[in-house]
């Protein structure tokens, strides 16, 4: 399923922040994880991911360190900052609010779906 660009622009950064919440990751790893863990819905190419990472870095939500991987290759690893965690919490709250609203409206399935029938 192809997600609208504007929707992706909102969902992509929070998805990346969420992936980095638990551990640091490098670019290819992030691409793969996004694709696999969202069933391809949030899959994004390098042309989208790396500018997004640079933007998050510019805003101070993530930081990068260059290290040599066990494979011997130089990689840049990204990890979440304290500011990034705060941002992730805020974004998560907002997405939950949206999801609840969507459920209320019956767009998403959930405990309040079907209010029309009830009313």
């Amino acid at each position: 399923m192809r997600i609208e660009r504007e929707l992706m622009r909102g969902a992509g950064p929070v998805a990346v922040l969420k992936l980095l919440e638990r551990r640091e990751m490098y670019g290819y790893e992030l691409v793969e994880a996004l694709s696999k863990r969202s069933d391809g819905v949030l899959a994004m190419g390098q042309s989208t991911l790396y500018p997004m990472l640079y933007n998050l870095e510019a805003k101070g939500f993530i930081e990068s360190t260059e290290r040599t991987a066990p494979s011997g290759r130089e990689r840049k690893y990204y990890h979440l900052t304290r500011s990034g965690r705060t941002q992730l919490a805020e974004q998560t709250g907002q997405w939950l609010a949206i999801a609840r609203a969507m459920q209320t409206l019956g767009i998403l399935p959930g405990p309040t779906a079907g209010w029309e029938a009830a009313s």
């Binding site: 190419g45 390098q46 989208t48 640079y54 933007n55 870095e57 510019a58 805003k59």
Partner: peptide, 18 residues
């Protein structure tokens, strides 16, 4: 990879923010 021109543009914009 995606559109190289678009990628270059976005990378440039993001990098300059840094």
């Amino acid at each position: 990879f995606g559109d190289p021109a678009q990628a270059a543009k976005l990378i440039r914009r993001a990098k300059r923010r840094n």
